[in-house]
Simulated scan of single mutants.
Amino acid sequence: MGHTLLSSWTFWALLSAVFAALTAIFAKIGVEQVDPDFATLLRTAVVLVSLALLLRLTGQYQPLASISTKSYLFLLLSGLATGASWLCYFRALKLGPASLVAPVDKFSLVLVAIFGVTLLGERLDLRQWCGIGLVSAGLILLVIKP
């Protein structure tokens, strides 16, 4: 892998999608006979330990005092939103098929685009809005019962 690939947001986003897909499949199998909230706790513990080991091995820890109050606040809010998302996601996986739960969960793509534009001042061109519209249309096709 070249340096260019490792510094590409597209590479990391696609890799994230692969891992998110595996997450859905592994979680669906894992939650079959486990309470979804307890399954979320186990998953969170694995993530916490894995990240701590990664940071230790790569020396990426930074002093807590170097983090601004604003960053702390928004990382706290992000953590709370992540926890709520995971609780809802595992409950949905317990109740429904992974092949439908995961795509509906990805409605977050549409919401991120809308929030990015309205809250962060990001701009999307017509082609990008069409893509967001197609994702929305695909979601509607998945959830509408014939």
Score class of each variant (00 low, 15 high):
residue 88 C to R: 04
residue 42 L to D: 01
residue 146 P to T: 09
residue 35 D to C: 08
residue 125 D to N: 01
residue 38 F to H: 13
residue 88 C to T: 11
residue 136 S to F: 08
residue 70 K to F: 15
residue 112 V to I: 13
residue 8 S to Q: 14
residue 3 H to N: 12
residue 19 F to K: 02
residue 82 T to D: 03
residue 51 L to T: 12
residue 25 I to N: 04
residue 92 A to K: 05
residue 56 R to K: 12
residue 114 I to H: 03
residue 41 L to I: 07
residue 127 R to F: 06
residue 137 A to R: 10
residue 35 D to Y: 08
residue 23 T to L: 15
residue 105 D to T: 14
residue 97 P to S: 12
residue 134 L to S: 08
residue 14 L to I: 02
residue 133 G to Q: 05
residue 69 T to P: 02
residue 119 L to C: 02
residue 27 A to Q: 06
residue 98 A to Q: 15
residue 141 L to Q: 10
residue 89 Y to P: 01
residue 46 V to R: 03
residue 103 P to M: 01
residue 3 H to V: 11
residue 6 L to D: 04
residue 39 A to G: 03
residue 85 S to V: 12
residue 102 A to E: 06
residue 19 F to P: 07
residue 126 L to S: 06
residue 6 L to M: 13
residue 25 I to G: 01
residue 124 L to M: 02
residue 47 V to S: 08
residue 104 V to H: 02
residue 141 L to P: 00
residue 58 T to C: 12
residue 122 E to Q: 08
residue 132 I to E: 00
residue 114 I to V: 15
residue 142 L to N: 01
residue 51 L to D: 03
residue 31 V to S: 01
residue 65 A to M: 14
residue 21 A to L: 15
residue 60 Q to K: 04
residue 74 F to E: 02
residue 71 S to D: 09
residue 122 E to N: 02
residue 84 A to P: 01
residue 15 L to C: 15
residue 109 L to I: 08
residue 116 G to T: 10
residue 108 S to H: 13
residue 118 T to R: 12
residue 95 L to R: 10
residue 112 V to C: 04
residue 3 H to E: 15
residue 45 A to H: 00
residue 9 W to Q: 10
residue 89 Y to S: 05
residue 117 V to C: 09
residue 131 G to I: 01
residue 69 T to M: 13
residue 52 A to Q: 12
residue 13 A to D: 04
residue 75 L to E: 04
residue 120 L to G: 04
residue 95 L to P: 00
residue 44 T to P: 05
residue 124 L to T: 05
residue 125 D to Y: 10
residue 94 K to H: 05
residue 95 L to M: 10
residue 68 S to P: 00
residue 39 A to I: 05
residue 92 A to H: 07
residue 17 A to W: 12
residue 141 L to I: 07
residue 127 R to C: 01
residue 34 V to H: 08
residue 136 S to H: 02
residue 2 G to C: 05
